[in-house]
Computed example of a mutant assay.
Amino acid sequence: MTVIGGAPATGTTGTTGTRTPGPSAALLADLAVRALGQEARLSPKPGLADRRGRGAHDDMDLPLLLASAQALRPTFRSVAEVAERTAAGIERRDELGRLGRAGEAAMLRVTRGVNTHRGALWTLGLLVAGAVGAADEREAARRAARLAALPDRHLPVRAPSHGELARRRYGVRGARGEAEAAFPHVVEVALPRLRRAGAAGVAEEVARLDALLEVMSLLDDTCVLHRGGPEGLRVVRSGAARVLAEGGAGTVRGHAALLELDERCVARRLSPGGSADLLAAALFLDMVPWPEHVARAERKVVTCKR
Rank of each mutant, 00 (worst) to 15 (best):
L218I: 03
H162F: 15
G5C: 00
G11T: 07
V302A: 07
A282V: 01
A88G: 01
A129Q: 01
S43I: 06
V266A: 06
R195N: 01
V157A: 09
D262Q: 08
E263P: 03
P63S: 11
E246W: 07
L31Y: 00
R237N: 08
P44E: 14
L244A: 12
A9W: 00
A145C: 08
V186P: 05
R93K: 13
L36V: 04
R118V: 04
L165K: 14
S238E: 15
T2R: 06
R227Q: 07
G248R: 02
A166R: 07
L278A: 05
K300T: 09
P289Q: 03
D262T: 05
C223N: 15
S68T: 03
D61C: 12
R269Y: 04
G247S: 13
G55M: 02
R109L: 10
R167K: 14
R242L: 11
H185F: 06
R101G: 03
V132N: 02
P230H: 04
E260H: 11
V202C: 11
N115Y: 14
D220L: 01
L99T: 02
R54A: 09
G201T: 04
P21N: 10
R77Q: 15
V110N: 04
Q38G: 07
A257C: 02
L96H: 02
R77F: 08
T12G: 07
E95Y: 04
E263I: 03
A257Y: 05
V114H: 09
V206S: 06
S161L: 14
R146F: 08
L283N: 03
G174K: 04
R158F: 08
V79L: 15
M216C: 08
A175H: 02
D220E: 14
A140G: 06
L124D: 00
R296E: 14
A282I: 04
A240R: 03
V266I: 10
E180I: 03
L31G: 00
A87H: 06
L66K: 03
D136M: 00
Q70C: 13
A182V: 06
A207N: 09
R193T: 13
A40K: 00
R173C: 11
T12W: 08
A256N: 10
A141L: 03
R92D: 06
R167C: 03
N115Q: 12
T86E: 11
L127T: 02
R52N: 13
H117Q: 14
L124R: 01
R77M: 14
R296G: 11
G232W: 08
L285S: 07
F284M: 05
A245G: 11
E298L: 11
T86Q: 12
V215C: 13
A200P: 02
T86Y: 01
T13I: 15
A135G: 14
R51C: 07
E178R: 04
A256Q: 15
Y170I: 01
D152M: 10
E204T: 12
M287T: 00
H255D: 15
A280C: 05
R54P: 03
A175C: 07
A29S: 10
A25P: 00
D152P: 09
M216H: 05
M1K: 08
L225V: 06
T222W: 12
Q70K: 11
M60R: 07
L62W: 05
L225E: 04
K45D: 12
M60T: 07
R173I: 08
L127W: 03
